[in-house]
Amino acid sequence: MNRIKQRFESLRQQGRKALIPYVVLGDPAKDVTLPVMHALVESGADIIELGVPFSDPSAEGPVIQKAHERALSNGSSLRDALALVKQFRETDSVTPVLLMGYANPIERMGYESFVEKAIESGVDAVLTVDLPPEEAEEFNEQLKEAGLENIFLIAPTSTHERQKMVANMAGGFIYYVSLKGVTGAGHLDLDSVRANVTHIRSLTELPVCVGFGIKDGASARAVAELSDGAVVGSVVVNQIAELAEKGEADPAIYAKAVSAIIADMRKALDS
């Protein structure tokens, strides 16, 4: 069974909600991300969302944009993401890893070649922000055939008709974008989250997780109560940014700092 299915299955049995942190690979240095990933798992992450840096991250707010810029400045790329997951798998064979990024680096590598390498590296799922269902048909088939989950976004602006179309194509879990805006924006509307998640659940058996705009334990808990899990990005990335700006070079310091955030969120989710 796919690691993502397994993870949600065991969460369901334990009556717990998924905590899914996001970090950008190579932010701020290539040797930081592996210890950070392990630290995230140790402090309570259920799935790791690994951001693949792109020169034009048009769906990201300023915090994550800068993370992409830091990663690109040390040459981090999709190839490094795949190599990193392979390394991560040497000591962690159970935590699902989701690659989140933009279409062009994959297009450049070649969709077929990407799928092959992703499987070989131990990647479980892919979320391509700028490949909506209507442009993803072929890639979706290739991913499915290889046993990789294709995670799709549903937004507050998605009509019921589109929600159905996305639900029919999606695998792994549905990523519900909690707000109209870029990552890191701060206007979470819980009523709208509740209404949309309820509707999405009527369309699919897949778990529904909520991301964008989750700032702390309380907001993570609030969305998790309405869904199957919370995705946290900008808060974690912001912590990395603060250390990077101070010129911190020791990967262990980064690992410790993100651990503290995730442990807090885990506590809030489980309490």
Binding site: S58, A59, A103, V129, D130, L131, P132, E134, E135, F152, L153, I154, A155, P156, T157, S158, T159, R162, V166, V177, K180, G181
Partner: peptide, 10 residues
């Protein structure tokens, strides 16, 4: 084509 994030499709 239309390669944008879901939020913009509508």
């Amino acid at each position: 084509g239309r390669f944008v994030s879901e939020t913009l499709i509508s």
